[in-house]
Computed example of a mutant assay.
Amino acid sequence: MEKIKIITDSTADLPEDIIKRYDIEVLPLLINFGEKSYRDGIDINIHTLLGKMEKSNVFPITAQVNPQIFLECYNSYIKQGYKIVSIHLSSKMSGTYQSACIAKEMLDTEDITVIDSLNVTSGLGLQVIKAAKLKEAGFGIKEIESGVGEISSHIRSTLFFNSLDNLVKGGRLPKASGIIGNILGIKIIVAVENGEMAVIDKVRGSKRALRSMIEYIDKKGIKKGEIAVLLHVGETDILNTLREDLKYRKIDFIECEVGCTVGVHSGTGACGVFFVESY
């Protein structure tokens, strides 16, 4: 049986127990805060980051994993006889995927498969978990690549933010969406679509926002045998109700907390669900 290593980056926002269970290598993106740089999840955690952001007028900048880091990581596992499946955040949001491709080309080997998730946070995380489960079942890197590709275009999300200010500052949403989101009582529901953030609904009030999210999940359906992810950071008006609703409807889900790279853009007070739709 092939020795396979699953590698991803810190934007997958996977809980520590899953990382340890499947022995996943997680490469950190950088958070540049003024003149200081921090490795996401290693030198700084989300709660420290949000605290610093509240006290500072400086908006942090996130930076991709560079090719040299990938090269060193890949080389160390190749030397140990591993084949590698490397899955990363959307190429439309970061150069991390391109860095991984450059490192693979430098090593000139077919023992590395690099996958553009066209997603981020738990949308990427679901693909990494899929890869890890296929590895555990004894599949090779090509079968794992195929299995991840099968669900990739069917991953859906519905996300609620207390404020869209950071998404606009970080260039993830157009300024007009932020202006609408700041109108009294208007709540904007966001999703990852085609590798980028997109507005999928506008409603008035938190109760209607919750209803919109649940209706979206019901409309798409969750594929049998696949888990959902309840993602959150900080407190929102709807997190607890959303959690209880998922439990009530017996949806199989895990909870993940937003990491630092994604947290720069979400700010404090965001939650949502990522899932594989029925197809």
Rank of each mutant, 00 (worst) to 15 (best):
S163P: 12
I141A: 03
V168S: 10
S146E: 15
V168C: 11
F160A: 01
S152W: 03
L159Q: 03
D165L: 14
L164T: 02
F160W: 06
I144M: 06
K169M: 10
N166R: 14
E145F: 04
L167T: 06
T158V: 15
K169V: 12
V168H: 08
G147E: 07
E150H: 14
H154A: 09
R156H: 08
E150F: 14
S153W: 05
G147L: 10
H154G: 05
S157T: 12
V148S: 06
S152N: 13
I151T: 09
I141V: 12
F160L: 01
S146C: 09
L167N: 09
T158W: 01
K142Q: 08
S157E: 02
T158H: 01
E143F: 01
V168G: 10
E145Y: 07
I155S: 00
I155K: 00
L167Q: 14
S153T: 13
S157C: 01
T158I: 13
G140T: 07
L167G: 08
S146R: 14
N162F: 04
N166M: 14
I144C: 04
K169N: 11
E143Q: 09
I141G: 01
D165F: 12
I141H: 02
L167C: 14
R156T: 03
F161N: 06
N162M: 10
R156C: 11
L164M: 06
N166F: 13
L167I: 07
S153F: 09
S152E: 11
G140D: 15
N166C: 09
I141C: 03
V148H: 08
L159D: 03
L159E: 02
E145H: 08
I144R: 02
D165E: 15
K169P: 12
F160D: 03
F160T: 00
F161M: 11
H154Y: 13
I155Y: 00
K142R: 04
S146A: 15
I155R: 00
L164Y: 02
G140V: 06
I144P: 00
E145I: 02
L159S: 02
S157A: 05
S152L: 13
I155N: 00
G147D: 08
G147I: 08
N162S: 14
S146I: 06
G147N: 09
F160M: 00
F160N: 07
V168E: 10
G149E: 08
L164I: 05
V168L: 11
